[in-house]
């Protein structure tokens, strides 16, 4: 419902004010990462330094947590991309018995509060005598990441016209060639965008992870533990900034990959 009139001053102020509200805490995090003070949150900061970055990167526990989170996010994304794309391929066109229930089932892990998913998985692992660890974290993450990939790929499938496939087959390509040269290039960016978002989601997921992590400390859990421990504040600030960037970059890339379409990746989490 775009209009060529100009917005009133009040509306402009409220809209831009909303954006400022959304970004102000993020700016604060970025600023405190360079803060010279060791244990205070006083504002404005007394001085700026890069010192804490070298301290943070010299800490074995920080590096270990980063490595662990990258590993978990990569594995969970890989599983989610396979399952999400398969589900999207099955669901995009045909209607069949139970289709709505399957959609609901895919959405449920992110629609229900994380604490329910986390607790459900934890007691299932306990019942099966599976020790919590990397494997259990990955299983949990993959489960709620599927829907992210699914949403992106199914939107692309819907935009890919069926006549493209028919044209390809009419021109003599077989099923495999059609898949390889028509369908896959079409889906590629949507799958990639979905994968990026899934990666970002997995990288900073905290609530389900607290239940499935056991003694492992992925980055969000490391951060949460830090919050109750006031002595490491500067290192915490630096890691917080890095986690933020690590989730923002994939989301930004996903946006670039899918902009111009009807369904821009990332508009729903």
């Amino acid at each position: 419902m775009h209009s060529d009139q100009h917005a009133s001053v009040w509306l402009k102020c409220a809209a831009w004010g909303g954006l400022v509200f959304l970004h102000f805490p993020i700016v604060i995090i970025a600023m405190y990462a360079f803060n010279t003070e060791e244990s205070a949150f006083s504002f404005p900061p007394k001085g700026f330094t890069l010192h804490w970055f070298s301290v943070a990167f010299g800490r074995a526990d920080v590096l270990e947590s980063i490595g662990l989170s990258l590993k978990i996010a990569s594995l969970a994304t890989a599983i989610a991309m396979v399952l999400g794309t398969l589900a999207a391929a099955a669901m995009y066109r045909r209607s069949f018995f139970g289709k709505d229930s399957i959609t609901l089932m895919l959405i449920l892990p992110i629609a229900l509060p994380g604490i329910i998913t986390g607790l459900a998985l934890l007691q299932a692992f306990q019942a099966m005598d599976i020790q919590p660890g990397i494997l259990t974290i990955v299983v949990g993450h993959a489960t709620f990441c599927v829907v992210i990939v699914y949403n992106n790929v199914v939107a692309r499938f819907r935009r890919t016209s069926g006549s493209l496939i028919e044209a390809s087959m009419d021109l003599g390509a077989d099923g495999w060639q059609t898949f390889r040269y028509i369908l896959l290039p079409n889906l590629g960016t949507a799958m990639l965008a979905g994968g990026m978002l899934a990666f970002a989601l997995s990288f900073d997921e905290l609530i389900v992870t607290t239940f499935t992590a056991g003694h492992e400390k992925p980055l969000p859990i490391w951060l949460l533990n830090q919050l109750t421990r006031p002595r490491d504040v500067p290192v915490t600030n630096v890691v917080a900034l890095m986690v933020m960037l690590a989730t923002m970059v994939p989301v930004f890339l996903a946006y670039l990959l899918t902009k111009g379409g009807d369904d821009v990746a990332g508009s729903g989490k």
């Binding site: 809209a15 954006l19 959304l22 970004h23 805490p25 993020i26 604060i28 995090i29 405190y32 949150f41 978002l197 970002a200 989601l201 990288f203 900073d204 997921e205 905290l206 969000p220 951060l223 949460l224 919050l227 915490t236 917080a240 986690v243 933020m244 690590a246 989730t247 923002m248 989301v251 930004f252 946006y255 821009v264 990332g266 508009s267 989490k269």
Partner: peptide, 22 residues
Amino acid sequence: FYLAVMLPMWTSYIVKAYAWTL
């Protein structure tokens, strides 16, 4: 605007909560 709303949505939950404790 689109990006400016989307990026904070996806930014790490724990970092946002931490920012508010600061």
